[in-house]
Amino acid sequence: MQDKLKIYGREFSSRFLIGTALYPSPAIMSESIAVSGAEIVTLSLRRQNPAQHEGNLVWDLIRQSGCQLLPNTAGCKTAREAVNLAEMSREIFRTDWLKLEVIGDDYNLQPDPFGLVEAAAELVKRGFRVLPYCTDDLVLCQRLLDAGCEVLMPWGAPIGTGQGLLNKYSLETLRTRLPQVPLIIDAGIGAPSQAAEAMEMGFDAVLLNTAVAKAHDPVAMARAFRLAIDAGRSAYQAGLMVRQQTASPSTPTLDMPFWHQADPLTQE
């Protein structure tokens, strides 16, 4: 039996957080969320006219999924913008959970570490439960924890690239140095194998959107990711063997004395 994901005082059976953008239709979005098993979904207020709150059928469908809503501040470039959008989102979606995004570079959509820490501190003060989308920089992560974040969401690669875990050294460092902090890999995951890898490394969960929404068959891909994330977590709990240089047969070959085996050093 898998252990639960614990963040901000809540427990979740699923370690798959899924986004709600870019699907071919709202119906396919709903079905993908259901099949993913996700219990937390991200959604964005961006581009909505804040004066029009009611009657958004897509939001209604997302609410009907019964998942914890995680509004994001996608597209914000300053702490101030992010704080404003966070307040609007809290009012409209009636939750103080927030995926904090402060973008520092337009082309990479790379988080701005300075704006992120500034916004996180302010939002925590205002009572938000902040899940910051950050880079894999250890010191930035420590500053975000100092600011009062209880969960961190380092990127695997830039948003929408599907490149997987680009900097495994940094990610491993984060995992080793912050063993008690829930760490969710957010962004850059393109294939289920990459999600499984993140989970095998001991990350607590994976958040993704494009890889499912833009798949040829989003519902089937949602299932593939669910299975991969489960597999990765189980593997992490089971304890992976350490990679070895030399082959060792899983069935001992008793009939072959070791001095008969090929020795690369004494050949020729």
């Binding site: 581009r47 909505q48 006219n49 004066a51 029009q52 009657g55 958004n56 897509v58």
Partner: peptide, 8 residues
């Protein structure tokens, strides 16, 4: 393509 019925 924006999921909104805003006609402004």
């Amino acid at each position: 393509e924006i999921e909104s019925e805003d006609l402004s």
